[in-house]
């Protein structure tokens, strides 16, 4: 099974890289940006169940103190 995992900062955690990229876009003339955050994208090919992938996220791939994660099962 293939999984795509998106790791992002939890609400309220300041994302300095996102804030800087947003300022960069504004500096070169892109207006109207309401939010920009930068996270991690993880692709995983495994025999593990979704439950086990959740455990992988909780234990290592994300830090629940500061990050949320979203797991998407994919076909290819």
């Amino acid at each position: 099974m293939n999984y795509e995992i998106y790791v992002t900062y939890r609400a309220g955690i300041f994302d300095p890289a996102g804030a800087t990229a947003r300022r960069g876009l504004e500096q070169i003339g892109f207006d109207g940006i309401h939010d920009l955050s930068i996270g991690k994208y993880i692709r995983l090919n495994t025999d593990a169940t979704r439950e086990q992938v959740t455990e992988m996220c909780e234990k290592l791939l994300a830090n629940p103190v500061i990050e949320d994660y979203r797991i998407v099962e994919t076909e290819d």
């Binding site: 955690i13 300041f14 300095p16 890289a17 800087t20 830090n63 103190v65 500061i66």
Partner: peptide, 11 residues
């Protein structure tokens, strides 16, 4: 220990 260490605010 509690909490986490993020990237420096000024990058």
């Amino acid at each position: 220990l509690p909490g986490a260490l993020l990237r420096n605010a000024g990058l």
